[in-house]
Nucleic acid binder design. Structure first.
Lengths: 113, 113
DNA sequence: TGCGAATATTCGCACTATCGAATATTCTGG
DNA sequence: CCAGAATATTCGATAGTGCGAATATTCGCA
């Protein structure tokens, strides 16, 4: 596989490499949603949501449709939803290690060491 | 889905969000390889490869097995290979836009504007 | 025309990632 | 034990990301 093609895939992975953007993609799996609805559903700051949407748009993960005052977003290709399904499968298959990693991931309070 | 779970998935996507690491995962799909063999196959600097392997290891995308002087790496779960397959499918389905994006991605020389 | 709602963009800052160079570690054979 | 191969880690510089605050844009309607 050529390197630029890998770079392209890397871009897509990067677009998905943020919890908020994963949440957005998940929310869009059942159909399009206006930006405002997304923000309400996910409890996000307006600017923050818009920034994440910009990232997803720039990678063409998501497409937008303007209707009057609002902008409706939808997943560009359901295959991206399938990618999330595979990941879910992966997470479930390794629940134990997953939990261990999650612990390491949010130490927040856990000082020591 | 809970937020920490999404954070976990995001970590995995992030691990895959680099052309070199995608190349590594692809190379490991047909079986384990020693670090040195990987470096030779992909034409990478030793330190650089080792750093990328460290990322993949920390996200458990890849597991290592030490055999004497060498360290053999392998994909932890073939489902991650399937994720790459889906992406390939995606890229092919949208070849036109893909190419357009690739152009924007490596302007390097293209100054103007 | 101009206000107000919906969305996008810009800015400054803190944080993270990537890289090559240098250095450290671990193992094997002698 | 020592030299050398294979791999990992650390360091410093540079680039990229994520966030909220502020600001800009766009659209419908009175």
């Amino acid at each position: 596989m050529t390197t630029p093609l890998r770079a392209f895939k890397a871009q897509i992975f990067q677009a998905l490499a943020h919890p908020t953007r994963i949440a957005i993609v998940e929310a869009l799996r059942d159909g399009e949603l206006a930006a405002g609805a997304l923000g309400a559903r996910l409890g996000l700051e307006q600017a923050n949501l818009s920034q994440h949407l910009a990232v997803l748009r720039s990678r063409l993960v998501v497409v937008s449709r303007k209707a009057g005052n609002q902008v409706y977003y939808s997943l560009r290709d359901p295959v991206l939803g399938q990618v999330l399904d595979l990941l879910k499968q992966y997470v479930q298959a390794h629940l134990n290690e997953t939990l261990a990693l999650l612990n390491e991931m949010e130490p927040k309070k856990r000082r020591r060491a």
